[in-house]
């Protein structure tokens, strides 16, 4: 997968007991760049020994978090979204950070505030399930919203 818009760095801490491996991808905030990022995360999880089911869940988490980062952050080629993922034998830690758009911060805070409220899915709501899906697929999720940027950190325990 070659894409000039994605900047990728990988690292391996083979000397540690956990043998953690990490990857960082930086890309401009365009929705069309999210699929290769999520697919890279899935392959990285598989390389780390995760099952296809866990890798699919991780792909979904990365997809949803990155889509939100693009939708709710600054737009334009000068901005960037950074996805960092570290996997070891027990868990995958995923962090996604964007650059805040001041006009969108209030809406984003409201959306995050609604996490955990009614799980009912309406028949005609086309958007708005991403955060709930991330929460249900992950073991832990933290969202930190500032005027400079929003960081979402998700931990997904290995299941298979």
């Amino acid at each position: 997968m070659k894409n000039d818009n994605l900047v990728t760095e990988t690292s391996s801490d083979g000397g540690s007991a956990e043998g953690a491996k990490a990857i960082t991808v930086t890309f401009p905030p365009f929705l069309k760049l999210v699929p290769p990022v999520r697919q890279l995360a899935s392959r990285f999880a598989r390389l780390g020994g995760y099952s296809t089911k866990d890798a699919f869940r991780i792909e979904t988490i990365v997809d949803e978090v990155c889509n939100n980062a693009v939708d709710h952050g600054q737009s334009g080629v000068e901005s960037k979204v950074e996805m960092h993922m570290a996997v070891d034998r027990e868990k995958a830690d995923i962090s996604v950070t964007n650059q805040s758009d001041p006009k969108k911060v209030a809406v984003l805070k409201e959306l995050v505030g609604r996490i955990g409220q009614a799980n009912h899915v309406g028949n005609d709501d086309r958007r708005g399930r991403g955060l709930a899906l991330i929460r249900m697929l992950s073991s832990n999720m933290d969202v930190n919203i500032t005027d400079h940027g929003t960081s979402v950190h998700v931990t997904k325990l290995r299941e298979g």
């Binding site: 958007r127 399930r129 899906l133």
Partner: peptide, 11 residues
């Protein structure tokens, strides 16, 4: 693969 946006249009 289907994500939450895809699920939304299926509904």
């Amino acid at each position: 693969y289907v994500n939450s946006t895809g699920l939304g249009i299926l509904l």
